[in-house]
């Protein structure tokens, strides 16, 4: 596989990421946030009227969405395969967690890796046949999957398991070891943050490693990649499985954080949200997933004030605008800006 190493640097990720100090500060800040918010928010007075706990809950969702978008980015951004159906894997992750907790009294933290593994397997199996399909056909198959999932979850022969239309209510976990210093919302935030740090770290290593280079090679030149001895089916299926696993982990975290799952939360529009996050955040960019998560969590809140339909109209406009004016997403724009600033300094 030495030949593939020679071609890999052409891909955007082969460059060095942002500096380690910046990342460390950023992560530390994220960890400090729940403790700062209750102090800072009252100081801001009337500007932000949100309760600190609700704000923290929203930030937890941002982190969860970022993990899901990162998953989608692995398959779409880095491997060049289109999935319009990642909401389905999010649903599978969420339901796996909810059912494990509801039926088997499984501890909540254990459901997260289990959901990941379940989605890895389901994604790999779905990927194996579906990935023989290219471009549009894969998009079509995953689109169909996303449309069918809510109906499948409501199917009355599995209602005993899924709770049918009613869904499943689960109990929000308290902080472990009887810690009193933080409340349940803050604890969930930390849980999501820790999981996210692990997942992002794994993703960076994945992309820089052998499998990642093979994925990128397939995206950029499938025929050359095959000639170099990369097994297209295996690599593409692996990418799809890993991507599904990420989204499944996010789904499990989402179920725990919201303490409820129901079929109608997992419509095609969830899949489209992830796509919006991916495109707005930036394709083939690790940090883009974070911007994407922020976008799909907060834009609807702002737009909801106008009309129930407004968030989606805005999503649609952003999607089309993104294709025209910022194909590299927010991450790309920020990189450009940094490069300009550096150039200006010299």
């Amino acid at each position: 596989m030495t030949t593939s190493e020679a071609t890999a640097p052409a891909a955007p990720v082969a460059k060095k990421g942002p500096n380690a100090i910046g990342i460390t500060i950023f992560v530390l800040l994220l960890f400090a946030l729940p403790l700062l918010l209750p102090v800072v928010l009252p100081l801001l007075g009337g500007i932000i009227t949100l309760k600190p706990n609700f704000m923290i809950f929203q930030l937890t969702l941002v982190i969860i969405y970022a993990i899901a978008i990162l998953g989608l980015n692995i398959v779409t951004g880095y491997n060049g395969q289109f999935s319009l159906g990642h909401g389905a894997f999010y649903a599978i992750g969420a339901y796996t967690a909810a059912i494990l907790m509801d039926k088997l009294d499984c501890p909540y933290w254990l459901t997260i890796p289990i959901s990941g593994v379940v989605c890895l397997v389901v994604g790999f199996l779905f990927g194996l046949p579906a990935l023989r399909l290219q471009g549009h056909y894969l998009a079509l198959a995953t689109f169909a999957l996303a449309l069918a999932v809510p109906q499948l979850l409501k199917y009355n022969h599995i209602e005993w398991l899924t709770g049918g239309v009613q869904g499943i209510v689960i109990i929000k976990p308290d902080p472990p070891f009887g810690i009193k210093a933080i409340n349940a919302d803050q604890w969930l935030y930390y849980l999501a943050l820790v999981v996210a740090c692990i997942m992002f770290w794994l993703a960076i290593n994945l992309i820089r490693g052998r499998l990642g280079r093979a994925m990128i090679a397939i995206r950029d030149h499938p025929i050359a990649a095959e000639v170099m001895g990369i097994n297209l089916t295996v690599v593409k299926s692996m990418a799809f499985g890993i991507s599904a696993a990420y989204t499944g982990v996010a789904g499990a975290l989402g179920a725990i954080a919201i303490a409820f799952v129901a079929p109608d939360s997992f419509t095609i529009f969830l899949s489209i949200s992830f796509l919006v996050g991916l495109v707005i955040g930036g394709l083939a960019s690790i940090s883009g997933a974070i911007y994407g998560g922020i976008f799909i969590q907060f834009i609807p809140n702002v737009a909801d004030a106008i009309s129930k339909a407004a968030p989606w109209a805005i999503y649609g406009l952003f999607l089309i605008a993104a294709v025209y004016v910022m194909p590299t997403g927010a991450a790309g724009l920020i990189k450009q800006w940094q490069a300009k600033r550096r150039a200006a300094k010299q």
């Binding site: 779409t76 319009l84 489209i272 339909a309 989606w312 109209a313």
Partner: peptide
């Protein structure tokens, strides 16, 4: 291709939202 699929999805979302906005759900 991806750009065009994204544009199609954008259109899908816009029409869906506009219908709800103008005519109600």
């Amino acid at each position: 291709v991806l750009s065009i699929i994204i544009a199609f999805i954008g259109l899908l979302v816009i029409f869906n939202a506009l219908a709800g906005w103008i005519f109600g759900f």
